[in-house]
Simulated assay, not measured.
Amino acid sequence: MFDGLHSHRPWWQFTSLEELIIIIRDRVSAGDRIGLVIGGGAPAREGIDLARPLIDDVHHLDKIGIAATRLNATIVREVLSDAGVSVSGTIPRRVDEAVQLLESRPVVVMGGTTPGHTTDAVAIRFAIAASANRCIIATNVAKVYSEDPRNNPNANAFDKLTHDELQDIVGPDKHTIAGRSSVVGPVGVGEANRANMALNILDGRETNLIKAALEGNDFQGTIIFTERV
C-alpha cells in the first residue's frame, strides 16, 4: 500500500521528529510505502516577504519558496536515514523521479518542484502518479472550515466534502500568489478532483491523527471525495 503524506509546514513545528520516525518506521515494517512532501512553512513565507518588494515576477518568488521546501525536506530525509529508515538517498526534483525512487526504497522525501506548483499540488500529483490509496494533508487546522477559523470563530467545520465543494472554499484551480497559504492549494484540489484521489485533511500537530490516517482508521479531520454520476 502506498500513501502520500504532505506537511504544510516543517514537521518539527507540528510534532517531534522522533514521533515522525516512529510512525514512518512502523508503517514501513507493515509493508507500506510512503511519499513525504514537505512544505516551506515560515522560512518560505519570510523569504518571499523579504523579496516581494523587489520582485514582481511570481515565478521568481516561487523559486524562493521551493528552496525552503527542499531544505526542510533534506532535514527530514537526513533524520530518517540516521534513524535507520530505508529512505531515498536524494531529494527528487520531479514527481516522475520520486515515483522511480519509490520502486527501490519504501520512503521518499521531497519538497517543491517548479514555480506554479505548490507542495499541495506536488503531493497530490505524486500520490496520483504512484497510484496511492490516498493523499494525507497535514496542516495546522483541525478540519476544513467554510472560512478561516482564525478570522471567523463561527465558521462551519466539515467532516466530509466533495472535491467540488472544497474547490468552492479554496478558490479557482489556478496559481496566482506566491507564498499564499490555504488549507489545500486550489491547483492541488483540481488535480485530485480530476484523478478522483481521496484526500485526508487533518491537524498535523496531533501525531495520533497522522498515525490513524496512515493505518486507514477513522480520524478527526475532513475526508475529501468525488461524487461520480
Rank of each mutant, 00 (worst) to 15 (best):
G221N: 09
L214D: 01
L209N: 14
T226F: 02
A130Y: 03
E147M: 08
S182Y: 03
A157D: 10
V144Y: 03
I169P: 01
T207V: 15
A130V: 00
N151T: 09
I223G: 01
T176P: 00
C135A: 14
L202V: 05
R134L: 02
A132R: 13
Q220R: 10
T176Q: 14
S146P: 01
K143T: 05
V144S: 02
N151R: 15
I223P: 00
G190Q: 08
P149W: 10
G188C: 09
R228F: 13
A213T: 02
N140E: 10
A178R: 12
T176V: 12
S146Y: 02
I224R: 09
S146W: 01
R180C: 02
P149K: 09
G179R: 07
T226D: 10
G179T: 01
A213C: 03
E227Q: 14
V183E: 03
R134I: 00
L214G: 01
L166V: 14
G188R: 10
N133T: 04
D164K: 13
T176Y: 10
A213W: 01
T139Q: 05
R150T: 02
F158T: 07
S131T: 07
R180K: 15
D168M: 11
E206N: 13
E147C: 05
S181L: 13
T207K: 13
E165T: 10
F225K: 05
N193V: 07
L199M: 06
D203A: 07
N200K: 14
G204E: 08
V189W: 00
N152G: 06
D164F: 11
R205N: 05
R180P: 03
V189N: 04
R194V: 06
N133E: 11
E191Q: 11
Q220P: 00
G188M: 09
D173Y: 07
T207P: 01
A192Y: 02
L202F: 01
E215T: 00
S181E: 14
G190V: 09
A195Y: 03
V229Q: 09
T207W: 02
R150N: 14
A155G: 09
D148L: 08
D168G: 12
N152Y: 12
I224S: 04
K160S: 13
P153Y: 12
